[in-house]
Design a protein around this nucleic acid. Structure first.
Lengths: 297, 297
DNA sequence: TAGCTTCCATAGATTTTGTCTATGGATATT
DNA sequence: AATATCCATAGACAAAATCTATGGAAGCTA
């Protein structure tokens, strides 16, 4: 049984006549006759009594009518509701971010998303780059927020911003007097760095070694928060992303920019290659980009 | 958009792959590909991302899936539910009967109907033959219970029984001694008869005049009940249908059959010509027929 | 009652649509 | 790098929906 046939059936029931229904439906009378016959044959019951002057529903036809109307109604509703629903951003978006970005970027980006699509469901996950890449590749995550470079055949990367790295030191440190840091300043400082399980940790150590800045590394932390505590206690200086400073209300630390050619990292969004970007995902990326633009200039 | 297309869509969504879905659905892979494309074109959105290794739902596809499932479910349900509903006799049956039959026949016939189809809705109406015929002809009534003859181009009559008419007299009447009445007996009796607005009234008066029995008609009643009261009070004898006697618990009256060649009336069911007889209507007619057979022999 | 109109069903032609086979290009898998 | 898998396209074929033309039955009108 076919949608078209149901349409004809309802048409005939409402018109009370096959030929009148045919006119309304914009087809020829035999067409309607034949399709009605086909439904009747398919169901094995007569749906209309042919009365010479039009037709009238039989008991079975009467039972079918509301169901047919219902289905047609739903079919009609599909398109508009579908677009409305997608447009309203109902639906789920799963986002992953690396630990050195999540706390500093997601809240701002998500605030923008929620403003545009209040009804969306979000699923947030924090994990290391490699794990995030796997999840995006296998479809578990829609979006991964991380740093470049990432090389995976199934992953497409979109760079949304660049974030400078800055030096953080105890307020009592003599480095603070300079106001601006040059690479040479760091050679003599004790340093507290992030563990290399984090891509940020690797980026910093690569940067330092490439510039021949082999500071005295005393500790490898797994969280930026811990790192900051060590710095405050004067156990060394460190290098952290610029956004960390925006969030730090403590008086015990000072953040010092590099003078020029200082290190930075790219903030990028990873998606599954070939997969279309939904409106939610798209809105999130936009929100992230504009949030970072506002914060980082 | 087509049911078949929705079926393919759901199939692909469940299989996660067009070719696997094609196998499950028992059609070729290009068939499914093409129909999916057709829906996408029709809706103007992509429903699947082609990932090289199978496909996966887009945001829009995800929104469509539950609706598509819903519609398919309802389509699948139509046939079985329809037959079940009609089979269960859910639905309405409107019955009309003439006043000289309704109280004596409908209760018994309807009892049988309700036993078979407890869920049916009944709409009972009592009216004179002419009015009933109109209602049946225009479809307001499904069934009319009345007596022959009826001649109307849109009405089909089914005789279901024949009912003898009997004489009713006061217990004190000398007629009671005979036990069986001959026509000659009536010539000398005062008679109370039914108004000729009732077909029964006309039938009786025709019968009498054709047999040259011109009784002394003292009154024309519009209800059999009233008639019986007059008889009990000894104001005359009357002729009533046999079934009336079955219902009469009073000691004040006696019912006396005619000896032979006595009057009778046909009990018939009127339906709209060309209109199919539903299960409820059919069950009612059967119930009426068997009830009358039991009561009248 | 005769004639006209309306209405539905049927038949055959035509077009549209659904489906198939064959094939090519793109993407994983070994 | 070779192979296998998967989806898209093209062309052929078959099924179906639809159309026009026509016939028969039933109401309406004079």
């Amino acid at each position: 049984m076919d949608i078209q046939q149901l349409r004809y059936f309802v048409g005939v029931a409402e018109a009370g006549s096959i030929s009148r229904a045919a006119v309304r439906l914009g087809v020829s009378q035999p067409t309607v006759s034949q399709q009605i016959q086909r439904i009747e044959e398919h169901l094995g019951v007569l749906l209309f009594d042919r009365l010479g002057r039009g037709v009238s529903l039989t008991e079975s036809g009467d039972a079918l009518l509301p169901r047919a109307r219902d289905i047609l109604e739903r079919m009609r509703g599909i398109e508009s509701e579908l677009l409305a629903e997608v447009g309203a951003g109902r639906g789920r978006l799963s986002i992953g971010a690396i630990p050195t970005m999540a706390p500093y970027m997601l809240p701002g980006a998500i605030a923008g998303l929620r403003r545009a699509y209040p009804e969306c469901e979000l699923d947030i996950r924090e994990d290391l780059t490699e794990r995030l890449i796997e999840r995006v590749a296998d479809g578990t995550l829609d979006i991964g927020v991380m740093s470049t470079p990432v090389d995976h055949p199934l992953i497409e990367m979109r760079v949304v911003a660049r974030e400078r790295l800055v030096v953080v030191a105890s307020s009592k440190s003599p480095l603070c007097d300079a106001g601006v840091i040059s690479l040479a300043d760091l050679r003599t400082e004790a340093a507290v760095t992030l563990h290399e399980m984090h891509c940020l940790g690797r980026q910093i150590s690569e940067f330092c070694s490439s510039r021949r800045v082999a500071g005295i590394v005393s500790c490898r932390m797994t969280q930026i928060g811990t790192l900051l505590e060590f710095v405050r206690m004067g156990l060394g200086v460190s290098i952290v992303p610029e956004l960390v400073s925006r969030r730090d209300g403590s008086k015990g630390r000072r953040y010092l920019p590099f003078n020029r050619g200082g290190p930075s990292r790219e903030i990028a969004v990873a998606t599954r290659k070939g997969r279309s970007i939904g409106r939610l995902a798209s809105a999130f990326i936009d929100g992230l980009r504009s949030h970072l633009k506002a914060e980082l200039g």
